[in-house]
């Protein structure tokens, strides 16, 4: 406080406002640079990628050592892996979050679980890849497969889903729980009938952001699920698949003719970005809609 008072005496009003306008300029510029980075990247990808997009590109497999043809197997593979990741991460995440918000009482165990979730959230994606390789592929003998990849991705997005679900559950007013319990309705029924239905939209929108992340990850599936190239489509969850992110990496760094396949690379990047960002955008739109229509 003393500092403030002193500076009030020393600084003339103009000087203070001058400093303020410099500072405001700097923060505006920062925000502008970030927006420009996103805009620039998206613009560049769209301009260069749009030419490669055609119906055949999306529905046909690659041909001529992946220098021509489409990316259908990779699109399909990414869809399988994402669905698999949801099947693993969503139920586990929601149930964990219900325990943490509705049942758990403050204590050492809960603190430990929360630290564990934070640490899991911080595990690098390539380490998840190693874990998937060491545990699912080798130890459990699932091989490099949709199953191994889905489990790896599912655990990767688990912390995001737990976080989103916790937040959504906490936003359900305590008075709803009290009203239900005061009627002699049991705790589980209160959660199932009142808390969950009201939290579900929030849980889903938050989780979608995690799901978008799963669709775009490369390192975790490199050693656990992704194939450089497979002519046939997967027949079971024990088969390898192609996937969009890995396909981009392969084409851009290890293809037979990197320069010649640039258009295909841009096309694939555009498809991946479109998939991931439309998943995210859906979540963002649903959420802002929900905020406007919130009744409590």
């Amino acid at each position: 406080m003393e500092n403030i008072m002193k500076s009030f005496k020393n600084n003339s009003m103009q000087w203070r406002y001058f400093k303020q306008s410099i500072f405001f300029g700097a923060v505006r510029l920062s925000a502008f640079i970030i927006a420009l980075a996103l805009g620039g990247i998206l613009f560049y990808i769209i301009v260069n990628g749009i030419g490669a997009i055609s119906w055949d590109f999306i529905t046909k497999p690659p041909t001529d050592s992946m220098t021509k043809g489409g990316i259908m197997p990779a699109i399909l593979g990414t869809i399988y892996l994402t669905i698999g990741a949801i099947a693993v991460g969503l139920p586990l995440g929601i149930v964990s979050a219900i325990y943490l918000t509705e049942y758990a009482r403050q204590g050492k165990v809960i603190r430990l679980i929360k630290v564990g979730i934070n640490c899991l959230a911080g595990v690098p994606s390539v380490v998840f890849g190693l874990f998937g390789l060491g545990f699912f592929v080798i130890f459990l003998k699932f091989g490099s497969s949709i199953l191994s990849g889905s489990l790896t991705l599912g655990f990767l997005i688990l912390p995001t889903i737990i976080g989103a679900s916790e937040e959504a559950l906490k936003s359900v007013p305590q008075t709803f729980r009290e009203a239900s319990l005061s009627l002699g309705v049991s705790k589980w029924q209160t959660i199932y009938r009142i808390v969950l239905p009201n939290a579900l939209p929030g849980i889903l929108t938050g989780s979608i952001l995690g799901i978008g992340r799963a669709a775009g990850e490369t390192a975790p599936i490199m050693f656990t699920a992704a194939a450089y190239f497979t002519a046939k489509l997967p027949g079971s969850i024990f088969d390898e698949v192609m996937a969009l992110p890995y396909h981009i990496y392969v084409l851009a760094t290890a293809g037979t003719n990197i320069e010649a396949t640039r258009p295909i690379q841009f096309g694939t990047v555009l498809v991946l970005v479109a998939v991931v960002l439309s998943i995210d955008l859906i979540a963002i739109i649903i959420r802002s809609y929900m905020r406007k229509n919130k009744r409590w």
Partner: peptide, 13 residues
């Protein structure tokens, strides 16, 4: 839970 079935409650809000 049994107790609350017999003793109802109305809240402030």
């Amino acid at each position: 839970v049994e107790i609350r079935r017999k003793i109802g409650m109305v809240f402030q809000k």
